[in-house]
């Protein structure tokens, strides 16, 4: 599953069994966190876990531009091999989530990643970013 679409939580079908880094339970946690973040803020959150080409920041921003609505999207790009995390907020999204708060969320995420907990870090980061963004319009 390279570019994956996670079914929205309204579907009753279980997520496909991935031979990937996340177990089903972890996928469900991430899915739920993303759904809550999207619904409470009105922004679109997406998470990329995989290798990023050098320079890492530009590759993350390039992927962010591939989204349907980059201005209102937040991309969290995680590269476990390079051990780098990039949070990219679109033009509209960055007014809701200032860079300072993105930095704080990144700090808590890497604290979890450093302990080897990918899912926990992702869920924590989504939760922090969504609560900083506040209610959407």
């Amino acid at each position: 599953m390279t570019v994956g679409e996670l079914q929205s939580s309204s579907e009753t079908a279980a997520p496909p069994e991935l031979d990937g880094p996340f177990s089903t339970r972890q996928l469900l946690r991430v899915d739920e966190a993303m759904r809550l973040a999207d619904e409470s803020t009105g922004l679109t959150f997406s998470i990329f876990v995989g290798g990023l080409d050098e320079p890492v920041r530009e590759d993350a921003e390039r992927r962010h531009r591939q989204l349907a609505d980059p201005d209102r999207s937040v991309l969290i790009a995680i590269s476990p091999n390079q051990r780098q995390l990039e949070i990219v907020t679109g033009q509209h999204a960055r007014r809701r989530i200032p860079d300072t708060y993105a930095r704080l969320a990144a700090l808590s995420m890497v604290a979890a990643f450093g302990g080897g907990d990918l899912t926990g870090g992702i869920v924590t980061g989504l939760d922090q970013l969504a609560s900083h963004a506040g209610k959407g319009c």
Binding site: G4, L6, P21, D38, T44, I47, F48, V49, G50, G51
Partner: peptide
């Protein structure tokens, strides 16, 4: 980390 890259999206997005 040898897994295929995974991109979580909450709904099907049109990618360029």
């Amino acid at each position: 980390f040898d897994f295929t890259p995974v991109w979580f999206l909450s709904s099907p997005e049109a990618l360029v």
